[in-house]
Design a protein around this nucleic acid. Structure first.
Lengths: 189, 189
DNA sequence: TTTGAAATGTTGATTAATCAACAGAAACGC
DNA sequence: GCGTTTCTGTTGATTAATCAACATTTCAAA
């Protein structure tokens, strides 16, 4: 992803404006009711310009999902809690950071999770978490005959499902509390 | 000032970005210490682009002054307090709105007033207030042999001086209080 | 159903912004 | 003082964004 290194400043600016405008609109309207005209007006960009970057609003949606999931992963020092040395403090801090990211962008995630494309978005969430988890040597303990892939999918699904529940139920607990709870559950595996 | 009607969207955007960046920088550094590079970086604009719109940073400063003084005049329903029917409530409300505008943009005005170009900025302030006052039929009462121009200059100077004192002394009174006081003084003339 | 308004996606010509490179001026530390 | 760095203002070639216009399509209301 050699993004911002050499890309023209105008491209960076307009893409940022478009995606931000799109997210702003997503906090007011549902995805289906958002038009290209709306986005262009909100982003202060010519309507035709949007088509220079995205085929249609579905393409834009996917790009936004990519961007956001990527930002989410990078927002927390996510690598910590999959390391051998299971430093409890570091791990829960990382998890809390992740929950904080969700809290901060709750509008986006709840929009994504509550619209028709729920399953698509959930699948992509699980996928990206699974790929992150898979990169790290997980669960040195309890190494009975448990398939690594199965375990990865198991953890990722549990994680995403918990996040989804937390977001859609308007975050009934604090990020720190959730981080603690999830960490305890992860350790027991 | 047929500004936004037909001007290219890109011009509007970049000029807005540049002037806003300039104001943001003015709240941190003094004018003399601000470089074109700083402005370009803050505005996320190529350095050369600035020269497409402004000859140098002094030209930019003047343009910003124009813009800000214009916005200030239009921010309050300023016409009220120069009308015949001296509705006290409306007048003080307008004045309070004006003081509120100053309070909100105190950083800009204090930067302008406390730098070397104090006199230039003050003169322009007096000038614009005088032109606004002059447009309206003022002081129907007490119409002794008082030259209208003299009166205009008198009021404008008093007004600007009071604003300047208020800003540079870190706004020791509330906008409402100042509006009341100034209105009482204006009525006595 | 028909009509009218708004959204879509695309086109070509035009314009603004970018980038890299330049030479000269000012500012800074040694 | 001198050398280094940074800022300045300008250049020309290149690219991205704009605008107006177009034919379709969608959609809501008469």
């Amino acid at each position: 992803m050699e993004t911002s290194a050499k890309t023209d400043r105008r491209i960076r600016r307009t893409q940022a404006a478009i995606t931000q405008a799109f997210l702003e609109l997503l906090s007011k309207k549902t995805f289906e009711r958002i038009t290209i005209n709306d986005i262009a007006k909100q982003a202060d960009v010519n309507r035709g310009t949007i088509y220079l970057h995205y085929a249609d609003k579905y393409d834009l949606l996917n790009a936004c999902i990519d961007c956001h999931l990527n930002a989410m992963i990078h927002s927390c020092v996510f690598t910590h809690f999959t390391e051998h040395k299971a430093n409890v403090d570091e791990a829960t801090e990382s998890l809390a950071a992740l929950f904080h990211y969700f809290e901060e962008h709750a509008l986006f995630f709840s929009s994504m999770l509550s619209c028709q494309k729920t399953s698509v978005f959930r699948e992509r969430m699980v996928q990206i978490f699974a790929s992150v988890i898979q990169k790290k040597p997980i669960t040195p303990s309890n190494n009975q005959t448990i398939d690594k892939q199965v375990l990865t999918q198991f953890i990722a699904s549990a994680f995403v499902g918990t996040l989804e529940w937390w977001i859609l139920n308007r975050m009934p607990h604090s990020p720190e509390y959730m981080a603690k709870q999830v960490w305890m559950l992860l350790k027991s595996d």
